[in-house]
Computed example of a mutant assay.
Amino acid sequence: MDNRPNVQALIAAFPLPTLVIDTAEQIIALNDAAGKMLGPNAAGRHFTATLRNPKLVRAIERGLRDSAPQSIAYQGIENGADIHYDVHLQQIAKTGQLLVSLQNVEGQAQAEQMRRDFIANVSHELRTPLTGMIGFIETLRTSARDDARARDKFLGTMAREAERMNRLVHDLLSLSRVEAEQRVRPTERLDLRNVLQTTQRNLDRLALKSNVSLKPDLGAEPLFVIGEMDQLLQVFTNLLENAMKYGGADQSVEITSQIIAHDPVLRGPAIGLTIADHGPGIDPIHIPRLTERFYRADSHRSRELGGTGLGLAIVKHILNRHRGRLKISSALGEGAQFTVILPPAPEKS
């Protein structure tokens, strides 16, 4: 008795969509993953009835003629969206039948596109101040060599541009560290009121300079979470600095807390801390993208105020590590509210 499993039983165990095409160019076997991709009626049909991509069709025809294994990449359409696949084709020894497996690499393609976009954005952010500084240096070497007034003006501008590049590099390093630690759970039990008090003390000088009044109302009860002090300080420093800068001078920034019985995203109880300003507000069309790297609702104003376009991306990654989230609400002319939502620390046993 032959106990060897048949082709259908073998490919049923494959995790990738896999099918077998015989010498008559018909699909004679496919696993469940391939069935979901090609439809329930693919078995027994000519392969071109379900696999219509010209590049893939040519590869299958070549694979049926030639026993040499092949790997190709092609782009298909699934539910109206472009999907990228890596396909491996190889004849099954001494049968002439062709084994075809397809791997969806759309996630890899998207990650590669994000990497290219990130490099392009960083290059742009650095090139702009560098171009300006190179121009100023050339002017100081030539026409403004003996002009003390122009020299002082250009050196002041160059100092600001250098500081802008320094902030960008600092934020890039911060983002890299946060991403590297994102899967490592924090372990420290912290009272968020203490985190906010420390943040406020650190920003008192900026608040005084901008004539902004910070108004915390955090209640008398502790707001315990499991977190990392330095990273949570970074979150609230970033949000408070933004509120003071974009809320405008001679305004107030309110910091309030709330106990949330059930947060629908965290699927359980939560602690919310809201930082609200009274600035010009944000058009709601921008809100879903504010935590993207280098996305700015107002690019010119952001650069004037020293923003790098990475602050809210860093906040998002830190809150992801803390199993929390950032909620943003705003309307034009009505200020903006940034709410940090974190799961509470379990009660001490």
Rank of each mutant, 00 (worst) to 15 (best):
S123I: 05
L233S: 05
G219K: 08
M133V: 10
G324K: 01
D217E: 15
I328S: 01
S101K: 02
T142D: 11
Q234L: 14
A24I: 04
T339R: 06
S257N: 09
T23M: 07
L312H: 06
P288V: 08
L290C: 04
T308M: 05
T142K: 14
N242F: 02
I282Q: 03
L319W: 04
G272S: 03
L342A: 05
R267D: 13
I271Y: 01
A159H: 10
V195C: 03
K55F: 11
L239G: 01
A120I: 06
E163S: 11
R201F: 15
T256S: 09
P269Q: 02
V122N: 04
L19P: 00
G39M: 06
T291C: 09
G309S: 09
V253D: 01
R296G: 08
V7G: 00
G80E: 05
G333I: 05
T23P: 02
A162P: 03
D191R: 03
G76R: 03
V100E: 00
Q26W: 03
I27L: 02
A59S: 12
K153S: 11
L192S: 02
N6M: 04
A12Q: 04
T23Q: 11
N41S: 15
E334A: 12
L310E: 06
I255G: 00
I285P: 05
A276I: 09
Q337M: 08
R183W: 15
G333E: 07
L140N: 04
S252E: 10
R62P: 01
R127C: 09
A180E: 15
P280L: 11
G96S: 09
L99V: 08
T237N: 12
L99H: 02
R62D: 12
R193E: 04
M114P: 03
S123Q: 13
H88D: 09
L240K: 03
R183S: 15
